[in-house]
């Protein structure tokens, strides 16, 4: 693929830029009896921990915080390897690439959960859920990192190995 490194880098940089608003702005607002309560991604995880749902809290933590971050960092490392022609264990790094390409989709968990809540909890003044601006940023991060993984050509890791 032509310009694989440049294209991947462009997607990754945009991904980093949007990772910040995705985490500081509210991802959804839960209203009960007219009282709105905005939640960030972290806030949602904390709420799960407080209501004694630790396994689910961990699941969301991995899918929404750790996976996107590890993807961004992992692809950045792969780019450095390919660009500076580091002598590496290409087999191992190809495996890292495959893991990154595989786990990316699971970050959509939060987006799907919000879509379900928004459609389901629509009870006028009693209770409602509205998606927040971080949802758009987070959705963009997921797509950008998936595109980055797709653009990256694992052949680059093999070409210059001795």
């Amino acid at each position: 693929m032509p310009d694989s490194v440049q294209r991947t880098a462009a997607f990754i940089l945009s991904g980093y830029a949007l990772y910040i608003p995705a985490n500081i702005f509210p991802i959804m607002t839960v209203s009960r009896f007219g009282q709105g309560e905005p939640h960030t991604i972290i806030g949602g995880i904390v709420a799960l921990v407080e209501s004694d749902m630790l396994p689910i809290a961990l699941l969301v933590l991995v899918a929404s915080i750790l996976v996107p971050l590890l993807k961004l960092l992992g692809i950045t490392l792969l780019l450095f390897c390919a660009h500076f022609r580091w002598q590496i264990n290409a087999r191992l790094w190809t495996r890292l690439y495959r893991v990154i390409a595989f786990v990316g989709r699971w970050s959509m968990l939060d987006i799907f959960m919000i879509s379900i809540l928004v459609g389901l909890v629509d009870l006028g003044g009693v209770a409602s859920v509205i998606a927040g601006p971080a949802a758009t940023a987070f959705a963009a991060v997921v797509v950008l990192t998936m595109m980055a993984a797709k653009m990256f050509d694992p052949r680059l890791l093999w070409d210059y190995q001795r």
């Binding site: 689910i56 969301v60 899918a63 989709r105 699971w106 959509m108 968990l109 799907f112 959960m113 379900i116």
Partner: peptide, 16 residues
């Protein structure tokens, strides 16, 4: 991503 959506349904149910 149907399987991820399924997990989203489960998390939404737990939350509610």
């Amino acid at each position: 991503m149907l399987e991820v959506y399924m997990l989203g349904i489960i998390v939404a149910c737990v939350k509610l």
